[in-house]
Design a binder for these strands. Structure first.
Lengths: 341, 341
DNA sequence: ATGAAAGCGCTAACAT
DNA sequence: ATGTTAGCGCTTTCAT
């Protein structure tokens, strides 16, 4: 009586429905080779018993887990959060669970997480990589687990990849600042070993050099190194810059705080453009001009591609999808949009 | 030769190490009843073969999955994101995976997700509930799956609960605004069926009434209903209010946008206090005064309690943990903190 | 269209 | 300290 609810198995269902185990199984997987009548009877028995299939058992036999892994560096980043949401939504449609882990941008941690995922027999991985190296994926690759890499591509790996036009977008943003007449533009980025960062830096450089100006870069190993003290030499004195271009959301946050701490005003003291949009960008006076990445779309595409890959019969070539960005002019670049006139 | 990497099982390990299956199993679980020497030999064999244990199989047998579920309404909310991070960190320490799902605040979706989790034999659940009803938990409760409810308690359910002092904190925030001399204070909240919302409203009301003022409330079914149009009657005309108290992060975002759209300034037009702190609160002039919830601490405690519950031998009474909040005075309430003088 | 039997990879009794 | 024997709950041959 007490442990009954613990252990309603397909066998119980089959018994109640007066069919064999296999027939019950067929009903569970709504196999076509089953008389609708029989199926209905089994379904009723399931209902009656409150039967819940055991995914572990199904997966063990079928060598799939109906779960995908998603590994991201930082959930606090709204770009990441939006992408995670998108992946979850797609996963739900296909009845897959999402096992989420944060790497904190640490490649070793990421690898550890991936290994744990492997042991769980995950059916696929959406990875926002902590490094551009492929070494972390060896295990997965060897096991033929589909992977979609997203935001941060992998060097020389034949893996599905969803990215944005990092270089071009960064170049465009820089050109916009240059067009306003600013020559000494500081680019602030983190984790320069990442493709995203290096591409954005490259775009920035090419724009600056085309304009005959000198690149001024503050690139730190990790965003957390970005202290007000580090920034202050660029905010006053002989090395004062004329404008700032932050290369991702966390950098934007850090720079804004540093400016605040130094009692510097955006635009009047330092015109600024941010790579990455966020909820309140328009509320920071005079409104932050940003490069907006299609976060939700990126996540959606990543998941779509992953599920396609998971259900494909023979191996297709890797897909490389590159999405565009939106340049959203608010006030911080020097433009005067209506809202702030 | 080809499918070898697919199927390295404990049997293979045992064979290579020249021991029995069970001995290999013991090594895997580093059981004490094993000669270190033997254990080492098995471990070496595992290494050599690149063996990865199959968690599905382990779980099937042991009736545990080494995974916990976490269900939250909205990942975009920084409060939620921080809590998720905290839970993940604790879970990692104990070797548990976190299966994350978003309910979008929809009780039906939440129930569907819980059911899927159940099928995966999750060992426990951390729930940021979409409703205060217990019905969604019946299945879990019946199966004796440990649950920790967090942020939003469940009516009359004997479940571990981690919350903050919603009522008291809301009362304190309201009193602060009243002390500044504002009488007509608008409270803006969403999903009033939630305990958190109703408690905060209750705190607000009791403060307002004690001051001999009238409560003015804008409570919508869902945050997404909070449009500028809905808000505008309170921003001008005969029903104009003197100050605003937003009851959670999303409401704060919505109100800030509405104010912006209506070209109203914080403080000068409308003093404001927000329940929930966030990254840029100090950057929105004149700095947002907020009630800060200890998001990370909440998540941490929730996970801790869950794991304690999971490993307990005999059932202990439910724990109700209530954490305090911090009232952070910046400028928007009418105070003039140093930073903005 | 349905059933019987075997076994996925592992752990848990019980030996020895 | 180590091995043997059963299964966990399900899906999958292969019969019927």
């Amino acid at each position: 009586m007490k442990t009954k609810s613990d252990s309603i198995t397909l066998v119980d269902v089959a018994r109640l429905a007066g069919v064999s185990l296999k027939t019950a199984s067929r009903a569970l997987n709504d196999s076509p080779e089953l008389r609708p009548e029989t199926g209905a009877r089994v379904l009723k028995a399931m209902e009656q018993l409150g039967y819940q299939p055991n995914e572990l058992a199904r997966g063990l036999k079928a060598k799939r887990s109906a779960a995908i892994a998603m590994i991201v560096p930082n959930l606090a980043d709204p770009f990441t959060a939006a992408a995670v949401q998108a992946v979850q939504d797609v996963a739900r449609e296909t009845g897959h669970a999402v096992i989420l882990a944060s790497s904190g941008g640490d490649a070793a941690l990421e690898e550890a997480e991936l290994q744990i995922m492997l042991r769980r027999q995950i059916d696929g991985v959406v990875l926002m990589a902590a490094s551009s190296g492929k070494s972390n994926l060896k295990l997965l690759l060897a096991r033929n687990v589909p992977i979609v890499v997203f935001d941060e591509p992998l060097r020389g790996e034949e893996v599905d990849t969803i990215t944005v036009t990092n270089r071009k977008s960064a170049r465009g943003a820089t050109e916009h600042l240059l067009a306003h007449g600013y020559k000494r533009i500081l680019a602030v980025g983190a984790r320069p070993h990442l493709y995203t960062c290096s591409e954005r830096v490259a775009g920035y450089r090419s724009a600056v050099k085309s304009a005959g100006a000198e690149p001024i870069e503050l690139l730190v190993q990790h965003e957390s190194d970005l202290t007000p003290e580090l920034l202050s030499p660029f905010l006053s004195g002989p090395n004062r810059v004329e404008a700032i271009f932050t290369l991702n959301w966390v950098c934007t946050m850090r720079v804004l705080r540093a400016l605040n701490a130094a009692k510097k005003k955006i635009l009047t003291d330092f015109p600024l453009v941010s790579f990455d949009d966020f909820e309140l960008a328009e509320m920071i006076p005079p409104g932050l001009t940003v490069v907006r990445q299609p976060a939700h779309e990126l996540g959606h595409q990543a998941a779509k591609v992953l599920f396609e890959r998971m259900s494909e019969t023979k191996r297709q070539p890797a897909r490389k999808i590159v999405l565009g960005t939106e340049f959203i002019v608010r006030g911080s670049c020097g433009c005067k949009p209506k809202a702030w006139e």
